[in-house]
Design a protein around this nucleic acid. Structure first.
Lengths: 343, 343
DNA sequence: CTGAAAGCGCTTACAG
DNA sequence: CTGAAAGCGCTTACAG
């Protein structure tokens, strides 16, 4: 490998490699793209030349010919959220099998940035785009699809000309609530908000469905301003300040952060979890595990969603003509932990 | 904008736009690259044609000619860590001013992936690479630099042929400890580990320097296995199980997660923070803010580091000949909160 | 502004 | 395997 620091020297191209190895240009190309058809001895001579010259293939030229890069772009609404990081890992794993590399872009909950990165990927001629969008019009994505770019939505439903991978939020709410009911608890509370977030509203509907299945069960609904730890403090304060008899026996908080905050405040106020109040969270993220008492939580299969989205995208890339758009709904899982173990 | 869903129709190229607008090919190129030299009326005709045909410029062809894409690649050791996400935001902000887009890649603490993404970016002919590396040999990065690719290290020192942007960890440790001393506390403890992590060792050295400045101060060193919340639980248990007189008055935990875990355990054991024990963390991340008592913490300027790294990289991209490699050390900041407010 | 042309660095037939 | 050539879609002089 060439380690001379002379950055100004022109970089070698395939013709240089061919000359240096004493082979034809096409042979160098074959070593790179169809190594099996080149004789072992020739192949080694070429690889040595590549090494000695420090040759790096120019993918701009390559994809200009092939019409497509061997990369996929993933525009993520918030890379600070571990849910999406899990997805990215799943996507990468799946694409790895096809020798496709993943490029990430963070739209940072900003529509202009989301659109801009869709353009970047389109102009870079990526093989396809994965989009975990923010809740806003998807015009730019639609336009790109109409120009022939395969696009798959993640954590967002597909439509007429795009696939999507989503989680069943209603089922998640059902599972969380059913679990509390199964512990023999009857006076339950749902906390979360705002309900304008469709995921929250869906979880609430699931909770209602579960409660409706049990004759003497009751669900109190507490709409919070946010589903943050601070929101949880307020929630915990509100619950612990009630007379003991008026507190719910079971709390389903629509996010782990909310649950963790509530638990902290209630514990400091002398309430015991789960014996005074059983708690179930949502998201199965670090809050669920880092709380003073491990929190039962509903987990979304971020990693699996990523894998699935990448599979569907690859399908479309590999055979666009035969591809049928669809939305895949994945199932959340309940992780039972100490915060709800009434026994 | 063309919204026909016919994905199989060949995509328009610049020649199609020229024909459709009734202008020369070079004029279309000028509208895209030097709009100011094209007459208003002509420009509009071209832009309309672009819109009507749904033309998207092929950047593979473009950068084949110009020799460089208007993108920068950022290989991040862990996108799950908000420190690096902050950096990415800073980088993006800075690059925006130069109309350069940022592509992220997650090496996920995996050397092979790190090297692989460096290659991806190099082959994609990005204008430069930012690298927040894992603690391992940087051969691939070095080789890329020697081939003429500008590379800037973030959270890692530069060397003979790369710039670097780092934080002064020793100063951070000093600031945290000095703060506890300034509150009148004398029996202090440093907790963190393993010391094989250079950042931890540096923070410890800073703590020792601060204590050495005060005659009757004493620093106990507690090396922990990890700096996680779980590590904090063990730490808190250890401290709260001691006889009251043998507990430190002030605790400097080398990470907020560690501090948060220790505080939770100590509070449940009946200790009061900060009156029984003042606590300072490190990283100024969500743990510092989401703890039951807000935690005083040392913050690393991730956002600023990102901006600075992008600036330095742009300098090198814009004028490689005149560029001198250097390492920039940035200053951490103490954020004082209730966990250390002895008063 | 137009029109015609060269060239960026590859891939991909094609004849030998 | 070689050798020669076309072509991917642009940018960039250049003469008019």
């Amino acid at each position: 490998m060439n380690t001379s620091p002379d950055a100004s020297r022109p970089r070698p191209v395939m013709a240089d490699v061919a000359r240096h190895a004493g082979v034809a240009l096409g042979t160098v190309s074959n070593v790179l793209n169809n190594p099996q058809i080149v004789a072992q001895e020739t192949r080694e001579r070429v690889l040595n030349a590549i090494d000695e010259l420090g040759f790096v293939r120019n993918n701009a030229a390559r994809s200009l010919v092939t019409g497509r890069a061997d990369t996929v772009g993933f525009v993520v609404v918030d890379v600070g959220n571990s849910f999406f990081v899990d997805m990215a890992r799943g996507v990468e794993e799946e694409l790895d099998a096809h020798n496709i590399r993943l490029l990430l872009a963070n739209s940072d909950v900003n529509l202009a940035k989301q659109d801009s990165y869709i353009s970047v990927f389109e102009e870079a001629k990526v093989a396809g785009i994965l989009l975990a969008p923010l809740d806003a019009p998807l015009d730019a994505a639609r336009a790109a699809r109409h120009r022939g770019m395969p696009v798959v939505h993640v954590n967002w439903p597909g439509d007429d000309d795009a696939c999507g991978v989503v989680v069943d939020e209603e089922l998640g709410g059902y599972l969380a609530t059913r679990h509390l009911l199964d512990q023999g608890l009857r006076r339950l509370a749902f906390a979360g908000g705002p309900f304008s977030l469709s995921a929250i509203a869906q979880r609430h509907i699931g909770a209602q469905r579960a409660v409706a299945e049990v004759a003497d069960a009751h669900l109190e609904t507490i709409e919070t301003h946010s589903i943050t730890v601070r929101g949880g403090y307020a929630l915990g304060e509100m619950l612990s300040s009630r007379p003991v008899g008026e507190r719910p026996e079971g709390l389903f908080a629509a996010a782990d952060a909310l649950a963790a905050g509530a638990i902290q405040t209630m514990q400091l106020a002398g309430m015991h979890v789960p014996s005074d109040i059983a708690v179930v969270g949502y998201d199965n993220n670090h809050f669920a595990q880092d709380s003073s008492i491990p929190i039962t939580s509903v987990g979304q299969p971020g990693h699996e969603m990523g894998r699935t989205a990448a599979q569907v995208l690859y399908e479309e890339i590999a055979d666009p003509a035969d591809h049928t758009h669809r939305t895949i709904t994945m199932t959340p899982t309940l992780f039972t932990r100490a915060s709800s173990a009434v026994v």
